[in-house]
């Protein structure tokens, strides 16, 4: 591909780096895994960039490639995998009791998400990204009706998982 295409690509990736990072956070099991996944997603994006015709939004195209890569590249899961917790709250602000409690609860939620299936994680991620069900359908290929039901189930599952964690079961 031409130098200009490469520059365009790097610029678009830079603008949308957040998408790749979030996918890596959800699907990578440890730092090394996340780095590998990050690298693989960039390679797959670059390989497909030539065929990007702009029929879909760049971000939709990017979600598809990132999720396809993350889901189909996963190696055998270790029995108990808990995702490492990204820093949501700046350390200097996490001093107050309230913030500490909030961070604790977030950790619980994050640990619960790590126990979801690959498909459920993808749905959660798109939900957290504030995507509409139609956009989710465009990315995942699952009908919006089914996605709504699945989302409700996932919320219920997360509720019971966080509860179970709180009671240490």
């Amino acid at each position: 591909m031409t130098k200009t295409a490469e520059q365009d690509f790097l610029q678009l990736v830079n603008q949308n780096q957040g998408i790749i990072r979030k996918v890596c956070h959800l699907y990578g099991r440890n730092d090394a895994d996340k780095d590998d996944l990050y690298q693989e997603i960039i390679i797959q994006l670059w390989k497909s960039f030539g065929s990007f015709r702009g029929e879909a939004k760049f971000s939709t195209w990017m979600y598809r490639i990132a999720l396809n890569t993350a889901i189909s590249n996963l190696r055998k899961q270790a029995r108990k995998v808990v995702l490492s917790f990204p820093e949501f709250i700046p350390l200097e602000q996490a001093d107050s009791e309230e913030e500490k409690l909030k961070e604790e609860k977030l950790k619980e939620m994050y640990a619960a998400i790590s126990r979801l299936t690959e498909v459920e994680k993808a749905i959660v991620m798109l939900y957290l990204e504030d995507k509409s069900y139609d956009e989710m359908e465009e990315i995942l290929g699952i009908s919006s009706g089914t996605l709504r039901v699945k989302m409700n189930r996932v919320k219920e599952k997360l509720r019971s998982l966080t509860k179970a964690q709180a009671y240490g079961t």
Partner: peptide, 29 residues
């Protein structure tokens, strides 16, 4: 904790991490 509470903070995920530089990205290709 509900998923919607996580949604409020989701945009910050990974934002504090230092991403690869332009050269590093180019090398990845």
């Amino acid at each position: 904790m509900e998923l919607d509470q996580l949604k409020e903070m989701w945009d910050d995920v990974g934002s504090k991490e230092k991403g690869p530089s332009a050269d590093e990205l180019q090398a990845l290709l």
